[in-house]
Amino acid sequence: MTDQIKHHLTDALLMAYSAGNLPEAFSLTVAAHISMCDDCRARLGAFDTVGGALMEGCEATQLSAGSLEATLQRIKSGDAGIEPARRARSGGILPGPVQDYVGGDLDAVKWKPVGMGVKQAILPTSRDATVRLLYIPAGAAVPDHGHQGTELTLVLKGAFRDEMDHFGPGDIEIANEDLDHTPVADIGEDCICLAATDAPLKFRGLIPRIAQPFLRI
């Protein structure tokens, strides 16, 4: 998998993921790409190291009196923060972090048709951005659409081509509001993508659904 990937995460995205500053929907897409791409995993390691060095370079802030004792007490009573468990390779079609949101692999996805054979499933995340699985039948096109903000599209299975390039499994396309594109799935295999967008909240709910841009992107 990892050798075929041509389209990678940018430094800006890796840095923001490392710093913990991305909306949940983007973090999920970044985590899914890293699950498939050892190159970006190594680059993330470097950004985490930068974070560690910056934290260690911070001036010390005075702790509360008895802070160490209070912490030892927490340890005794098992009262630590919840640290996400490391997870092993899933072995399925969906990367592990995506399976966590779906509640299973591909067969557990609750697809909703959005027209022309294209289906989607919106995954539950914090409201500052949205992320969905997209199912594009072989040879079909997602109608031409622009973007309100940034859109990340990660190919999980199959491939698509648009005005920019050809994207295969593990490739991530990073599009901003300048790009109007028409992704077309390759002939021969249905294409499944994970797509995240940070379109502003004001476009949700206030405007009747029918008037919203395609797929609420």
Partner: peptide, 23 residues
């Protein structure tokens, strides 16, 4: 320690969980 603190920050300040890559 930075990664632990970063995860705590997302949980406590940003109030969502952090999706982690597969190991």
């Amino acid at each position: 320690i930075f990664t632990i603190a970063r995860n705590r920050k997302i949980d406590a300040i940003r109030k969502h969980k952090r999706p982690e890559p597969e190991d």
